[in-house]
Simulated scan of single mutants.
Amino acid sequence: MRRAIPKIAAFAAVAMLALTTPAQAQDQQAAYFEYTDITRDKAVLKLTDPAKIQHARDLLSGATTDRPHIVGRIVPRQASYNPRWNYHYNSDTVDFFDVAIEVCDATIPYVEDHLDEAGGAFLPGYIWCPWTSRLTREIPAP
Rank of each mutant, 00 (worst) to 15 (best):
Q54R: 09
P22N: 03
A9N: 11
I38C: 12
E138F: 02
D27I: 01
K52Q: 11
P50I: 10
S91T: 06
Q24A: 13
H55T: 07
I74R: 02
V14R: 10
D58Q: 10
I101T: 12
V103H: 09
C104H: 04
Q78M: 15
C104E: 04
D105R: 06
D66K: 12
I139K: 04
K46A: 01
R2A: 14
D41Y: 07
E102Y: 12
F97L: 03
I70R: 05
F33Q: 01
Q28T: 07
S80I: 06
A106N: 00
S61N: 06
Q26L: 13
F122P: 03
I101D: 13
T107V: 07
L59Q: 11
R2K: 15
E34Q: 09
Y81E: 00
P50W: 05
I38A: 13
R67D: 14
T64R: 06
P50A: 11
V44Y: 11
A56K: 05
Q54K: 12
R2D: 15
A56W: 03
V94T: 09
P124D: 06
A141I: 03
T136S: 04
P68Q: 08
I38Y: 08
G120Y: 12
A15M: 15
Y32W: 03
A118R: 01
Q26T: 11
D41L: 05
A79V: 02
Q24N: 12
P140W: 00
P68T: 08
E112K: 11
A63G: 09
A43Q: 07
R134G: 05
D98I: 01
P130I: 09
I139D: 08
Q29M: 09
R2L: 15
Y81P: 00
D37F: 00
A18Y: 13
E112A: 15
V71Y: 08
E138G: 03
N86A: 11
Y32C: 00
S133Q: 00
T48A: 07
A100T: 03
R73S: 10
H55F: 05
P83K: 08
D113S: 15
F96D: 06
P140R: 03
C104W: 02
D58L: 04
E138V: 02
Y110H: 07
V111A: 09
V103E: 14
A63I: 10
R84H: 14
T48S: 09
Q29V: 01
R40N: 14
A141H: 08
Q29Y: 07
D66T: 09
D98A: 06
D113L: 14
T107M: 08
T107I: 06
E117V: 14
A23N: 13
Q28A: 13
R134T: 09
I38T: 12
A31S: 06
K42Q: 15
V71K: 11
L135R: 00
D49R: 09
I5F: 14
H55P: 03
D37R: 00
F33I: 04
R77K: 15
A79N: 02
A118K: 01
V71W: 10
F122Q: 06
L17K: 11
A31W: 00
D95L: 05
G119Y: 07
V94H: 03
V44I: 15
L60S: 08
P109Q: 04
L60Q: 07
I8S: 14
W131L: 13
R67I: 14
K46T: 01
D37G: 01
N82V: 01
P142V: 02
I101L: 10
D113M: 13
A15F: 11
P130W: 09
W128T: 03
A100H: 07
R57C: 03
P140N: 02
